[in-house]
Every structure is written in C-alpha cells, then in structure tokens.
Amino acid sequence: QEKNFELKISHWVPATHSLQKALEDWAAAVEKDSGGTIKSKVFPAQQLGKAFDHYDMARDGIADVTYVNPGYQPGRFPIIGAGELPFLMSEAKGGSMALDAWYRKYAEKEMKDVKFCLAFVHSPSSFHSRTKKIVVPDDIKGMKIRPAHATMANFVTQLGGTNVQSSAPEVRDIIERGVADAVTFPWGSLLLFGIDKVTKYDMEAPLYVTTFAFVINKDKYNQMSDKQKKAIDNNCNTETAGKVGEYWGKMEDAGIDKIKAESSHEVYKLTPEQIGLWKKAAEPLVKTWAEGVKKKGDADPDAALAELKASLTKYNALAQ
C-alpha cells in the first residue's frame, strides 16, 4: 500500500511570475506519473519563508520542494557560481540543460543536505541604467549598481563601482530614489516589477545569467515508494530543467521587444570590440570564483569550468 503525499512547494516570487506556472506544471506532471499519489500545493511570494532561506527550508522540512537562488548566499554554493560568470551562456533553454547536466555530480557534494532536483538559468541579460549609457567596463566606475548575485557584485566592485543590495520588489524604489543608478535584471521581470518605469538605457548583451535550483526534502523523498520516487526522478532531470528554463526564458525574452517599443528606453547592442573589453575585464572573476571553490574544497575549479564549457557547447548555449 502506497502512502499518499501532499507536497508543499515554496517559492518567493509573485504568483503572477511565470515560475508559478512552471512549478504548477511540475507538480501536475509528478501527480500524473505517481498515479495521483503525490499531490502538491504551490505557496508563492514568501508565504512559507523568506527568499534567502529556501534551501534551508527544504533541508529542514519546512517545505518539501523549494526554489533556490544559490547566489543569494555568497560562499555557500561556490561551484554552481560558475554559471554566473559573465559572457558564458547565450540562451535559457540550452543554458539550463547544460548547467543541469554539468552540475548533477557536484550537487551531491555542494547540496548534499537535500535531494537535488534540477538546476536552470533565466535568459541572459545585462545592465539597465537610469543615469547613463553603459558601453564599456570603464563606464561602471563611480556607479551605484544593484547586482543580481555575488558574482556580479564582485564584477561591479572590481570595475570601480559600488554595490547596493535590495530584494527584487525593492529595486524600483531604490532606483527611483537614486540609491542605485543601474541594475542587472532579466528583461521580462523588469516589466513585472515596474523597473522599466524608472530606467532608460538597456544594454542588450549576454552579460550574465542567474542560476537557480529546485531542491527536495530528503526525508520526504526517502519515505516514498519506488514508483513514487520514479515519478519524482522523471521530473528531476536535464530535460525538465530545459523546459523550466525555456518557459521562463520565453517570458523574459518577450520583455526585450516590449522594452524596445517603449519610447522612453534606449536599447543598444555592443560592437565586437566592446564585448572584447568586457570579456577581458571579467577575467579576474574566474580567478576569484576558482579561489572560492578551492577554499571549500569540493571540486577542482579548472576542470569544473572546462566541463561546464564543454556542456554548454554540447547544448549550443555557449556565448560567443
């Protein structure tokens, strides 16, 4: 006799975000594959806990499945931070599949307190600025920027800018008040949080992506029957990671055209020379990242990064 489960799925973005739908779809697929014995309920908007705590929530059983941004806690998940390095990924679906396929073996060490489900990225994005057009790395000097994650924060510091921290819903407010001049933010979400109303200049370049993961409470998973475990595993794989990334990526990419259509915005591309300058400027970040990985000692950074690039090449998502 199989036990019935009702999983609590928790995330921290608004219920209107495409992630809500992605998680509902995930839950429906698990329910179907389990023959209806695993049902779920999605709790959006930090109803069960704060954004920063979502990894711990799955580990401790406060929720059963959670959505995690590993970059929110610098130092804690250094390996997956490779995905945050600038000019690495060109698109969401392939990037997600490549990241997931690559990270699976590292997750066993780095996210060992939970059952790792999948990892994915959103569409590449870049700087959106209120005060000035950011074209070359030198432009960052003296600017106040709200970075997407720890790697971008390091980049800003290294280029002579300063970081301003805030949660996503507060970004509009801090730009409006001049606390920050610019933000790194994905395109569609820019509209969702109303940040397009307070920014003017948008760099269109694959400067960065943010890595995310779905993780599951280990005890819950271990209590399941083999058939139920299989229903979970069926939906915790590279293919599903691609689907989640693609679904979200479409939402973000749709934002590019909407913002281009806004007369108050100037969306600009970079020349190959300018991109070269950015890539060169980003080189020290690789070193910083590698040091962080070495310090925690769960992987050999050089090998790991080479593998990630190979994986990206395989899934056609390595930024050129």
Binding site: G49, K50, F52, D53, D56, D60, G61, I62
Partner: peptide
C-alpha cells in the same frame, strides 16, 4: 501539522532572518 523538527527549525530561522 508538519512536524516538530521543522517547526523548531522555523523558530531559529525566522528569528534570525
């Protein structure tokens, strides 16, 4: 409703956060 171990974890986590 959920379990006492998670409930106690919730105390530390919520207080500190």
């Amino acid at each position: 409703l959920v379990g006492f171990t998670p409930a106690l974890k919730l105390v530390g986590q919520t207080s500190m956060r």
